[in-house]
Computed example of a mutant assay.
Amino acid sequence: MTYDLARRTSPHRAYWLAVSEPVASGSDTWLVVGLGNPGPRYAGNRHNVGAMAIEQLAADAGTPLRQHKARAHAAELRIGTLAGGRPGPRAVVAVPMTYMNESGGPVSALMKFFKVTPERLVVVHDELDIDFGALRLKRGGGEGGHNGLRSISKSIGTKDYLRVRVGIGRPPGRMDPADYVLKDFSAAERKELEFVLPDTVDAVERVVHDGLTAAQNVVHAR
């Protein structure tokens, strides 16, 4: 499956095509979830970079995230464009409105509501064991102590879903990792996020359009 690389030249990366009609439920629908904690207190935290990426994605599409009964903010989109300018795959993008360690409930509810299979679930989350700004893609595996992933795996009954891992780096000195992830990005890191977040959106698109292996070959080579 191919998609329109030329549209990446937009400075606003507006290659996410919103749809006015509801996304049809069914096995062809993707669910892309960004993890974080709700409310302004946590909005700038490192732990919220997954949620930030989904907000970036929705902003690129010009489609606001709206409250969903699954205890999430969600939007229905087409992801990119296919060869010949046809709309890309159907997707629901969402941010759970629960705390991180309860992310599984909203994700499970969204999957049931939109009839999404685990194979078409993409979770975007922060990763301590990856340098800040680097991206890594994988399917399944352990949760690495990440409470959001642990909650999702337990709620949907499998670890076999796609992850877009956004590096936030290790805490300095002897700082407790639990404290580190709940601190805001530094001023320098916030400047870099202007590049990291669009790159994360791009990584999500590549996974959906080209499959995991092809996406890894591009994203991991950066």
Rank of each mutant, 00 (worst) to 15 (best):
G105S: 02
E194Q: 12
P171V: 10
D179V: 00
L193Q: 00
D184V: 04
L121I: 06
G85L: 13
V196D: 03
K112M: 08
T213E: 15
D202V: 00
E205S: 11
L197V: 05
A134Q: 09
P198V: 03
E119R: 11
V164T: 07
D176H: 14
L197H: 05
L149Y: 02
V207R: 09
M111G: 05
K159E: 14
A109V: 01
R90T: 14
L149F: 01
D129H: 14
D131I: 04
D202H: 06
V92D: 11
V196T: 10
R190F: 02
F114I: 03
G157N: 04
M111E: 08
G105N: 01
L77W: 12
V93L: 06
L149W: 01
E192Y: 04
L128M: 09
P96R: 10
Q216E: 14
L197K: 04
L137G: 09
G88Y: 02
I130Q: 04
V93R: 04
A188H: 10
D126N: 11
D160W: 07
L128E: 08
R136G: 11
L149C: 09
S151G: 06
P171I: 02
H125I: 02
Y161D: 03
A94W: 07
V208A: 07
R86Y: 06
D184H: 13
R163V: 07
D176K: 14
I130H: 03
G105Y: 01
D199L: 03
K115A: 14
L135D: 07
R78P: 02
G84R: 12
G105E: 08
A94E: 08
K191A: 13
Y180K: 07
L110S: 09
S153W: 02
D199A: 14
A188I: 09
L197Y: 04
P118E: 05
F114G: 08
A187K: 15
P89Q: 08
V107L: 00
P106F: 02
I156W: 04
V196I: 15
P171R: 00
L193E: 03
R139P: 05
E189Y: 09
G144N: 13
R150I: 01
E102P: 00
G145S: 12
S103G: 07
D160S: 12
L162E: 10
P172M: 05
D179H: 10
V204R: 07
V92P: 12
A178D: 10
I152E: 08
P87S: 03
K191M: 08
E205Q: 13
I156G: 03
A83Q: 13
R206K: 14
G211F: 08
V122P: 13
T117S: 13
G133R: 03
I130N: 01
T117Y: 00
G141Y: 05
I168D: 08
G88T: 08
N217S: 14
T117K: 13
D202Q: 05
A215D: 11
G167V: 09
L77E: 10
F113G: 00
G104N: 03
R163L: 06
E205F: 02
L121V: 05
V207E: 09
A187E: 15
S155D: 04
L137D: 09
F132L: 11
E205T: 12
E189W: 04
N147K: 15
Q216L: 11
